[in-house]
């Protein structure tokens, strides 16, 4: 059985190391917070100006002045610090955030990432994604291996406008884990019941 959304989030949570400052993107990456391994203490950054994101509030705790980058209401923790947007991206651009876990539309074997724009469709904007992939130490992408038509999203070369060039380190999909190397994508792990041949067949990119 390939991984489902929660399995992918749980696998991505294994990327977390004790003491890390981490930024989680919207979608499956947000679920990673539910799977932080025992004994691992990480601090989550929200690019609208917060370190130390707490759980969603109860109805009584809702505070319109306290939201995450997805504009959802959240809570603070004992360790929480607030700061302005320039400071927030100074720590991102300055390499202080160890890891970003992000969603993607396409990734390619050179580590290029496309996740902000489909030409001809409504463009909402890149938000903080370009800053994150350019500044964060390690970028892990979590996404379905293929689109809803069964076409590979792991490509030789991205076709959509890029978010960043050569920025992705690791790709976690429903089929397994791929690492970006200078020779191509290296299979680091296969989901249960997925063979090496299955992975290669579902991947347009060069698998080594």
């Amino acid at each position: 059985m390939p991984w489902d959304r929660n399995d992918m989030a749980a696998r991505a949570a294994k990327e977390l190391e004790d003491g890390m400052y981490v930024n989680l993107g919207i979608g499956i990456p947000t679920l990673v917070a539910n799977y932080v391994p025992e004994g691992i203490d990480v601090t989550l950054q929200s690019e609208n100006g917060m370190l130390g994101i707490g759980p969603f509030p109860t109805e009584d705790e809702i505070d319109p002045d306290l939201i995450n980058a997805g504009k959802q209401t959240v809570t603070e923790m004992d360790r929480t610090a607030y700061f302005d947007s320039a400071q927030s991206f100074a720590m991102i651009r300055g390499g202080k955030i160890a890891l970003a876990i992000l969603g993607a539309m396409e990734v390619d074997e050179k580590g290029d990432l496309a996740n902000w724009m489909i030409p001809g469709k409504l463009v909402k904007g890149m938000g903080g994604a370009m800053d994150l992939v350019a500044g964060v130490g390690r970028v892990v992408v979590v996404m379905d291996h293929t689109n809803k038509h069964g076409v590979s999203k792991v490509l030789k070369e991205c076709t959509l406008p890029l978010t960043g060039k050569g920025v992705v380190d690791r790709i976690i999909t429903n089929l397994g884990v791929l690492d970006v190397t200078h020779r191509g994508l290296h299979i680091a792990e296969l989901a249960p019941g997925v063979s090496r041949e299955d992975m290669i067949a579902a991947t347009e990119a060069t698998v080594v």
């Binding site: 690019e47 302005d84 947007s85 320039a86 927030s88 991206f89 100074a90 991102i92 651009r93 290029d112 890149m126 938000g127 903080g128 994604a129 370009m130 800053d131 350019a134 500044g135 406008p161 890029l162 978010t163 960043g164 060039k165 050569g166």
Partner: peptide, 28 residues
């Protein structure tokens, strides 16, 4: 990009007419 936007404002207010950033290199 959001961080570029924030820094453009910060820089403008701080008397800095331009700055170099890696954000957006290789993109439109």
């Amino acid at each position: 990009p959001q961080g570029t936007l924030a820094e453009r404002m910060r820089a403008g207010g701080a008397g800095i007419p331009g700055f170099y950033t890696r954000t957006g290199v290789g993109t439109v």
